[in-house]
Amino acid sequence: MHDDIETKVRQFIADNFLFREDRHSLCETESLLESGLMDSTGVLELVAFLECDIGIEINDADIVPENLDSVQNITNFAKSRTLKAA
């Protein structure tokens, strides 16, 4: 299940922010905001993905860079929420 979340997150980022598979430089902890891959309106796309596709509820207070600004942050955040829900 958790590996599944990480795969889904990576796929989502590749399809919606990265757009290309041959960009290998995106590492686990790279800031999506600072790299220009995700802008402040892109954050809302990410929130919609986490709510609809991963099925977790996001409060306004959750929309902070510590939860959403890198593959690792997003995966950890999503995992912790699905754990809670379970």
Binding site: L33, E34, S40, L44, D60, A61, I63, V64, P65, D69
Partner: peptide, 19 residues
């Protein structure tokens, strides 16, 4: 309007005042 829904920490990270 879409920017109004953002938390101020996200906006700060976007505008990147610290870096």
């Amino acid at each position: 309007p879409r920017l109004q829904n953002q938390s101020h920490t996200t906006l700060a990270a976007f505008f990147n005042s610290a870096h």
